[in-house]
Simulated scan of single mutants.
Amino acid sequence: MLLKINHETRYVYDTPVQYGLQQLRLRPKERPGQEIKNWAIEIEGGCLELSFTDQHCNHVDLINIERGRTEIVIRCRGAVENSDGSGIIGSQAGFAPLWYFKRHTDLTKPGPRVRKLVNSLGDDFETDIAKVHALSAAVLENVSYRTGQTNADTDAETALKTGEGVCQDHSHIFCAAARLMGFPARYVSGYLMMSDRIDQDATHGWAEAYVDRLGWVGFDISNGYSPDERYIRIATGLDYREASPISGLRYGAGGEDMIVTLQVQQ
């Protein structure tokens, strides 16, 4: 499936920026089953300082916001051809060893609610893949999809307590629980072509667990199935913060607004 993406993120600042940096993870991963036909990133109001590959093999661009700007625009355009691997990504290809993906973070640290969720699954599974599929279903059963109840700093325990959340929350809970069960797990940020719309207001997020003899396997907990050819993997990390499409810092007073326009279509 050949997918076309148009993605724009616009930051509008209340006061002129004195100094600011944006870290972009917006270039899709090149891998078997995902081929980048063309991809371009345009910056309005900033300039590229350097590019590097991080420990997760994410391509990272560091953008310097021009001094005195009250707006910066980041545009991504391109085409990616995907094939359906039934959610199976395969062997580990990054610089980090597998044990690294068993580490807990502030957003995925297991507490009593995560432990209770894991214990509720029991041990009656013939295979490991059946076990992690059951975990994915259990996360969605305990935390229904609803926007506006959590934010980017909500951790797995808090999301479970709230009982409502979005794809980021589902993925953090899954990673926390999977690691507690002994599986390496990671967060994935990317794009999803939806069947009922072209225009979207945000990128997507899901999780992957490493299963013996299969390698990395994806789980879109929010939608209840494994990623197929409609998904484009952009970045991976231990949690959302390590795989966030855009992150950064800014010196100066005043607030900011972020406006996202996104189209994903065949």
Rank of each mutant, 00 (worst) to 15 (best):
V60C: 11
G111A: 06
V118K: 02
P110R: 06
R69F: 00
F101N: 01
S91N: 05
C76V: 13
A93R: 15
R115W: 03
A79C: 11
L98Q: 09
S86M: 12
Q55H: 09
G94I: 06
D84W: 02
S120C: 03
H104K: 07
D61K: 06
I88L: 12
R77I: 08
S120W: 02
T105P: 08
G90D: 06
L107P: 01
C76E: 11
I72S: 09
P97G: 07
Y100T: 11
G122C: 04
I74A: 06
G122F: 03
F101A: 01
V60K: 09
F125S: 13
P97S: 09
Q92G: 02
G85Q: 12
C57L: 13
D61L: 10
H59N: 13
P110Y: 08
G94D: 15
F95P: 00
A79S: 12
E126N: 13
V80Y: 03
G85M: 05
A79W: 03
I72L: 08
T70K: 15
I63V: 14
L62I: 14
E126W: 06
P112Q: 07
N82A: 03
R67C: 00
E81T: 06
K109W: 08
E66F: 02
L62Y: 04
F125M: 12
D84K: 03
G94M: 12
E71R: 13
F101E: 02
V80W: 04
P112S: 11
G111T: 04
W99N: 11
K116D: 14
I88G: 02
K109I: 00
E66D: 12
H56M: 09
F101P: 01
I88R: 12
G78K: 09
R67S: 06
L62Q: 10
D124H: 06
F101D: 05
Q92Y: 00
S86W: 05
Y100W: 15
T108W: 04
V80I: 15
I88V: 15
I72P: 07
L107A: 10
G111F: 09
S91A: 13
G68F: 03
V73R: 15
D61T: 01
R103V: 00
I88W: 02
N64T: 11
G85F: 09
G85T: 14
S86I: 00
T108L: 04
L98E: 08
L117K: 02
S83D: 04
R75V: 14
W99A: 02
R113P: 01
T108D: 07
I72Q: 07
R67I: 00
E71F: 00
K116H: 10
W99Q: 08
